[in-house]
Design a protein around this nucleic acid. Structure first.
Lengths: 112, 112
DNA sequence: TTTAATCGCAATTAATTGGTTGCGCAAATT
DNA sequence: AATTTGCGCAACCAATTAATTGCGATTAAA
């Protein structure tokens, strides 16, 4: 039973669920209405998302509201950070290239 | 044959491969040396990563260098953007709460 | 109190996945 | 020319996954 965020967001239905409840908490039935699959299938997805702490439950009478745990979503962003550093560096390199080009142009400008 | 980025990064080995070749391109054998598994297993992972365009190949003689396609990594970041908007709003709300608190405190400060 | 609704859990099945083994091909080395 | 090296591809197997079906428990409504 592997249960990490990356495995959790691998499934398109689960990503859709995340997108759906991002703004407001919802019950399993309400969520299932947005999909073709059965309530049980959705329930299973909710369980997986809850197990890796991407969702948290709030019981209200016989209904259970599922809410997105934004803090956990940040973990994905944290993993991306290392690569952001690289792609921003690449941009900086491009800046350097452009800067060099500009200098060369300046050199070619006629001196008075 | 589902082949999307989220499915690709679900596997920890594949995430490790991505991390490994982020800085410089590498051959399958060189990559495999960093893992316990066989070259073929790594080869399969490379294929999956290539199929969803997270990696690109560059043939040099009989060697194939695999390089990370940073642009594709950005797609993950783009998916996160919608949630970032929410979590930043939450912070703003917190700011408001703190601001209100501060105002109340100011009100309580003795006026000369 | 009977009935209906909301939901989680367990068992089953079909599909998918990660891995291994065993090729074959092309480029380099001998 | 023969051998070694680097690699992809296809067949296969074991483990995992997504989905279905059929419960039982609890809460709310009739």
């Amino acid at each position: 039973m592997r249960r990490d965020i990356f495995q959790a967001i691998a499934d398109p239905t689960r990503r859709a669920i995340i997108g759906l409840i991002a703004i407001q908490a919802m019950t399993p039935n309400a969520i299932a209405e947005h999909f073709e699959t059965s309530r049980q299938a959705i329930s299973k997805h909710l369980r997986i998302l809850t197990e890796c702490e991407l969702l948290k439950q709030e019981q209200k009478g016989r209904e259970i509201y599922y809410q997105l745990e934004l803090e956990k979503m940040k973990e994905i962003d944290q993993w991306l950070t290392q690569f952001k550093a690289i792609w921003e560096n690449r941009f900086n390199e491009l800046d350097n290239v452009l800067a060099n080009l500009k200098n060369k142009t300046d050199e070619n400008e006629p001196t008075i």
